[in-house]
Structures are given as C-alpha cells and as structure tokens.
C-alpha cells in the first residue's frame, strides 16, 4: 500500500531483503496497467532479477528486459496507447532490449490479429487469432513439449487464449498445439499464448532471462534486427 513508502514506515528495525545494486543483476520492467503482472514479478524475482512495475513512460528508463503480462488485450493495448507506452516499448525493443509477452502480451507484440479490435505493436512478425480456443468454459491446461526447455514437458495454462495463425520467415516456433504455434521468438522478442507465470515452472522465464543476460553481457549493444513491422490497425 502507498503509505508504507512514506516517512512513517515502521520496517526500519527489520529491514527487508536489500535490493542487489550490482550491475550484473538484470532489471526487468513488467507492464502493470492491468493483468497478472504480480505473478511475473514473483517468478522473475525467484530467478534473481530485480523487477519494476511500469505504468508510465519514465518507468521504462534503463531496463534490461521488459514483460507484457496476461490480461485483457483490448484493455492493455488501449491503456498503453493512452500513456504513450506503445511508442516507448517500440523504442525499447528497437534498442535491442529483450521483450516477453504472455497471452495478451503476445497479442500486443504481434503484427496484427485476424479479427481486429486491437491495435498492436508489430514487434514480432506473427498474425494472431484472439480467443482462438473459445470462451472461458473452453480454457484448459495441458502438458506441452517445448524443446528449448529440455525434455520435461511444460504445464501450459490457456485462458481465453490466442494462437498464432501465421508466422513470418524470421520467426522461430518454439511450441505448437493442435497444429497452431503457441510459443515463438524472433530475435529478442519472445511470446507464449499460455501462462508459465501461473504454474511455478520457471523455465520459460529462465529462457527469457538468458536473452536479457546475453544482452547485458554485450553491453546492451547487440546488433539489432528487430524492426517494427508496422502497426496492425484493424477494424
């Protein structure tokens, strides 16, 4: 709560875990306009990253990685635009910063959606179908093989989830279900239609943090081949 940050904080006797200030600890921003941003922060924190909730443009400064959580894509895309965070995130990705999106985040990062309704950022060359598996009564969880994570299957939770309808040439599909790609990457951009943040399995976030650490090790100057694919405006 807000007032715990004020002058009257009472936790000075038993101070919380010190936040590591070391330069090699990744600072990952999590878009906190709406959705399950807290769960992403918990998983990233378990993996040793420092996280920051992003609500305004200046929250994007000096991030080593950025996550767009699950939520309502219509709401998230609209609110991002209102606070000019869409341009901010495009610029951040343009500088080579790794970006990961789950579910609504996947839609937000895509080139466009087939049925329209959401204006997307175009940071990964995929066309998505929103609510592709149906309404909530059809939401499900399943064990999926995702080879980049090793042999053990990942428990994938799909909630009113999208799938990837078509991929551009530069996109690598990481996981499929019923003939549709549900996880993919292109350069520094990673997307999953499901929610690893809800299962306690930290491997997908670990895979993302590998990208973040590689980006940091390269001094943040990784040659960038993410180009914005043009905003998909539909409807």
């Amino acid at each position: 709560m807000g007032h715990s940050d004020g002058k009257r904080r009472r936790d000075w006797i038993l101070s919380p875990e010190p936040i590591p200030a070391s330069a090699d600890v990744p600072v990952v921003g999590v878009l906190a306009l709406q959705g399950d941003f807290r769960e992403h922060r918990v998983v990233l924190g378990r993996l040793g990253a420092v996280t920051r909730e992003v609500r305004r443009l200046d929250d994007l400064a000096d991030l080593d990685g950025f996550v767009i959580p699950g939520g309502e894509s219509t709401t998230i895309v609209k609110l991002m635009h209102e606070y000019a965070l869409d341009d901010g995130v495009v610029a951040l990705a343009g500088a080579g910063t790794p970006v990961y999106g789950t579910c609504a985040g996947l839609i937000t990062l895509s080139r466009e959606s087939v049925e329209g309704g959401a204006q997307t950022l175009g940071l990964i060359d995929i066309v998505v179908r929103r609510n592709a598996f149906g309404r909530q009564v059809h939401s499900f969880e399943a064990d999926l093989q995702m080879p980049v994570l090793g042999d053990a299957p990942v428990r994938a939770v799909f909630i009113r989830a999208p799938w990837i309808e078509r991929c551009g040439n530069g996109v690598r599909v990481l996981c499929s279900l019923q003939g549709h790609a549900v996880a993919a990457e292109q350069g520094q951009v990673l997307v999953t239609a499901f929610h690893p943040e809800l299962t306690g399995d930290t491997r997908v976030h670990g895979y993302f943090l590998d990208k973040v650490r590689a980006h940091m090790a390269a001094g943040g100057d990784v040659v960038q081949n993410v180009t914005q694919l043009g905003r998909g405006v539909v409807r």
Partner: peptide, 21 residues
C-alpha cells in the same frame, strides 16, 4: 493431457482481470 475447468484455469481468469474495472 488436457484439463478443462480446473481451479487454476478458473482462478487464472480472475488473475488476468486484476488491476482492472
């Protein structure tokens, strides 16, 4: 194995609605 209507799927949608109206 695919499971529909699990508590994780049900409460998961509420997680996605957080911070919203």
């Amino acid at each position: 194995m695919t499971d529909i209507g699990t508590m994780r799927v049900k409460s998961g949608l509420a997680e996605m609605l957080k911070g919203g109206v």
